[in-house]
């Protein structure tokens, strides 16, 4: 069976009851994760709980074992071999590259965990900013010009990804943030 939201094979079935009507959804792992549906347990579950309490009486069952080949998103980190399923069990990533490997799945989760925060804002390691002249000029947003540029770059990247994966709500929020910083959406 195909995922209700994309072309992938559905591996998660979620049934929920609202106003006496049973709603059944068939989702692939990535879409389930994007909707905040937990198919694992433990720390990940806790992370989800911290974010928002889910709909009443939700039932989740895994229909088939694991993701089969051909998934649009990576389910294994090429650097540390952590699978997205393993992450869901422990809530912990295996290496720095996991963030890139699972960026699509992590984006929405991270956003919910951080009250809508989608991109880093703040301190940057000196090694990262080395070579670029330090800018003492602050913009109206309270960020230095350099910080603002870095922020905008990150946001634009995100907007692209959100549109690509048809996460329009996320895209709208990112667009707002870009506008607030006075940037264009190019």
């Amino acid at each position: 069976m195909k995922c209700d939201l994309c072309e992938n094979e559905a591996t998660v079935r979620e049934t929920s009851r609202r106003n006496g009507v049973t709603i059944e959804k068939h989702l692939c792992e990535a879409c389930a994760a994007a909707q905040g549906i937990d198919t694992g347990g433990g720390a990940f579950q806790k992370m989800i709980e911290q974010i928002a309490s889910g709909p009443a009486s939700v039932n989740i069952s895994i229909v088939t074992g694991g993701t089969k080949g051909g998934a649009a998103r990576l389910s294994v980190c090429p650097s540390c071999r952590l699978t997205f399923n393993e992450f869901k069990q422990s809530g912990l990533l295996g290496c720095a590259d996991c963030y890139r490997a699972f960026e699509g799945q992590l984006g929405p989760l991270v956003e919910r965990a951080h009250q809508g925060g989608v991109a880093h804002c703040g301190k940057v390691p000196r090694r990262q900013s080395a070579g670029k002249p330090a800018s003492p000029v602050a913009t109206s947003s309270g960020l230095s010009l350099e910080e603002r540029a870095a922020r905008l770059r990150a946001l634009q990247l995100q907007l692209e990804q959100a549109v690509k994966s048809e996460q329009y709500e996320v895209a709208a929020k990112v667009r707002d943030q870009i506008r607030k910083l006075g940037g264009s959406e190019a």
Binding site: A96, A119, C121
Partner: peptide, 17 residues
Amino acid sequence: FSPRFGYLTACPTNVGT
């Protein structure tokens, strides 16, 4: 560190600063 996610942490709930 990544420009988008900031300081990379084992649990994504701590990522950023």
